[in-house]
Nucleic acid binder design. Sequence first.
RNA 1: CGGGGCGUGGCGCAGUCCGGCUAGCGCGCUUGCUUUGGGAGCAAGAGGCCGUAGGUUCGAAUCCUAUCGCCCCGACCA
Length: 479
Amino acid sequence: MAEEKLPTRAEDFAEWYNQLVVRADLADYAPVRGCMVVKPYGWALWENITSWLDGEFKKTGHVNAAFPTLIPMSFFEKEKEHVEGFAPELAVVTHGGGVELEEKLAVRPTSETIIGHMYSKWVKSWRDLPLLIVQWGSVLRWEMRTKLFLRTTEFYWHEGHTAHVSEEEAKEEMYRILDIYERFCFEEAAIPVLKGTKSETERFAGAQITTSIEAMMWDKRALQSGTSHYFGDNFAKAFEIQFLNKDNKLTFAQTTSWAISSRIIGAMIMVHGDDNGLVLPPRLAPIQAVVVPIFKNDAEKEKVMEVADRIFAELKTAGIRIKMDDRDNVSSGFKFNDWEMRGVPVRVEIGPKDVEKGSVALARRDKPGREGKTFVPQAGLDSAVSDLLADIQASLLKRATEYRDANIHNVEDFEELKQVVQDGWAFSYWCESRECETKVKEEAKATTRNIPFNQPDTEGTCVVCGKPSKRKAYFAKAY
RNA sequence: CGGGGCGUGGCGCAGUCCGGCUAGCGCGCUUGCUUUGGGAGCAAGAGGCCGUAGGUUCGAAUCCUAUCGCCCCGACCA
């Protein structure tokens, strides 16, 4: 460790984040600009995220498949808004095998086009629908400014692509997936996201409706953490996905797509992390508890390790993801700080005194330093640790929810909105016009995040122009 | 693309303005001894054609030219 302490979040949040990602051993910078290497610890976290989501998708009838990385450039021309949205950030392959290609190939930035193309071959009858396919993989977008996990040139995600017989069914699918995303964030990541509909200008390129989940980071900026889109027949028309319905009529399919990316790891870092490092929610943490044996000499080591090994085995049997830190080249104090940096939820410390007393020290990561330490009996430790993990999970969600609610302000006045979004979110009536949205963007340097599904019963007036407005929207600075 | 910064052992930097003799420092790494309940100490080691290519010069990390790359701040975006 070149530097021992992280910058505090208050000092320099961006620098805190940059250092933390590397020092928590989640990822490293790759030799190619804007690309990252996800290290084993970061990937283990990602695997826990993906396995939960994969399980939910399968429960709701989806299947996995793989489509190619390279997409003919002409495919992007077929949907007007889609090409406008993605053309600027495409990486394009111009040569193969040493010769210039007849048709240039795009490295996929998202797969609506190639999948649309394939769906047109596969969908002929209403009996072929719904088609519910998920692809797990990575995509490439030539972003101007990058940041590990939040916005990298290549990023990992799943993209669901579905085709349906009717508008109702497709919209149902969009909302079903958004609900899965919401549950994932609340129950697994302990991030209290807000569900809603994106404004017209914030919509995905080519979508008729974009819904999103939005999360508040520690610095009160918003992070779009997942999206679920309804395309109507836009892509079906562009790629000729047609089928004969029950009335023998040729009909365009209704399609959706949706995604959560490795960016969600960035969200977890920025929502739960503290000045000592990462804080991982127990349900997703690759290591839920670490055993740190403490000893001065070989005689002590023997006694301590006997107990430590037994406890390790007990906790492992109890189904806790556990790690033994028996390194003897670093001090105990170093280990404490090291595991705090890596965000491990629970630490079990066992020293000579504990061996005598039949106790261990339990340290909970959500309360760093000595404050989160208690001494508990060795007997029944498995259930004590399980209970503590559940408690930490609940506390993280509670803390994040209180923080979110304390920093969302009901604002009715434009001047006030401009102030509020400097350090929080505004929740205001909005007429949903493009003009007012642009004015907010230019004068407040904030964007509409989404229009939540849960709305007050009353109506109001637009925070910008004062016209009567039916719905309120969240306004915030966003990543 | 606009603005700023930077390329020197694995990492972080000093040295560059004002050229000079064995290119330093911190961290990490290796070995040994002492340590270990909140980021250990001492000692001995290993490790660098100074981003790349030209040029100026008796002599270049240092000056000149070109080139490549990275990071940060903006517009864009999951």
